[in-house]
């Protein structure tokens, strides 16, 4: 039986992991490869690297990071951030990433989803959706530009649209829950997961192991992503997975 996946997410700026990482045993806590190895040893099922570099040089450095990760680890990983063209996708995938994640670029140019899926296969194309509850809409609205800009898209409609265009997976972040550590937005996750035919990764709000259980069981997520609770060692991937296993969730 296929397992649910636990995915740590690393923010990378100019080739270094940012957002205070507390792995004191590491030689270099800012090195993406070192951190990736720690998570691999803990049993992470996949990794996501989010490139938050603002400069062209920073983006070039990301390609080197991707090569290093790919040459040292035998688990799949996704790279997002700053991918705006087929050329950008090629650069990252040829460097050894398994998937690319598109967010703002997919909204601005939905044709990019189709082009990427045709060229690399749908399994390579992850669409990241930043969702925020909207009273007037009576549903969740899609935001872009790191959550700064509202779009006209309702989340479920956009999710179905990207799947139609060739997305192989959806990385769904709840802006309402992000950083709150109160748990994933289960109604959002469930609504999207039931509306599409591709796997959904729940993101935003993980604070403890039981939140993952809820995301999988109530939220019907296929995978769950978290950053700070792993980075700050509030829990570890292995702890979360052991707790899920004990509750009968299928884990690797």
């Amino acid at each position: 039986m296929i397992t649910k996946r636990i995915i740590p997410c690393l923010d990378v700026k100019d080739g270094r992991v940012v957002k205070g990482i507390q792995f004191v045993e590491l030689r270099d806590a800012g090195d993406p490869v070192e951190l990736a190895k720690v998570y691999d040893e803990q049993g992470a099922d996949e990794l996501v690297f989010l490139d938050i570099s603002a400069s062209h040089e920073g983006r070039k450095t990301m390609v080197e990071v991707v090569q290093d990760v790919a040459s040292q680890l035998a688990i799949p990983f996704t790279v997002g951030g700053g991918i705006n063209s087929l050329e950008d996708m090629k650069r990252i995938l040829r460097a050894g990433a398994d998937k690319v994640s598109l967010n703002t670029a997919a909204i601005v140019n939905p044709e990019l989803i189709t082009k990427g899926a045709d060229y690399f296969g749908t399994q390579c194309i992850v669409i990241a959706i930043d969702a925020k509850w909207d009273e007037t809409l009576g549903s969740w609205r899609v935001y872009t530009h790191g959550g700064r800009q509202a779009t006209d898209w309702e989340v479920i409609e956009w999710a179905q649209e990207v799947v139609k265009r060739g997305a192989g997976e959806i990385l769904l972040t709840s802006m309402d829950r992000d950083g709150e550590k109160r748990g994933f937005d289960l109604s959002l996750t469930k609504a999207v997961s039931e509306a599409v035919t591709v796997p959904v990764i729940a993101s935003g709000g993980a604070g403890e192991a039981k939140h993952f259980f809820e995301a999988f069981v109530e939220g019907k997520a296929d995978a769950a992503l978290a950053a700070s609770i792993f980075h700050y060692k509030e829990t570890s991937v292995s702890e979360v997975k052991n707790s899920l296993k004990a509750q009968g969730v299928n884990m690797r």
Binding site: M1, I2, T3, R5, D45, T122, Q123, G168, E169, T197, V198, P199, D222, A223, R252
Partner: peptide
Amino acid sequence: VKVPHMGWNN
């Protein structure tokens, strides 16, 4: 099930 079959299976 969701298609693609994506993830770890035994």
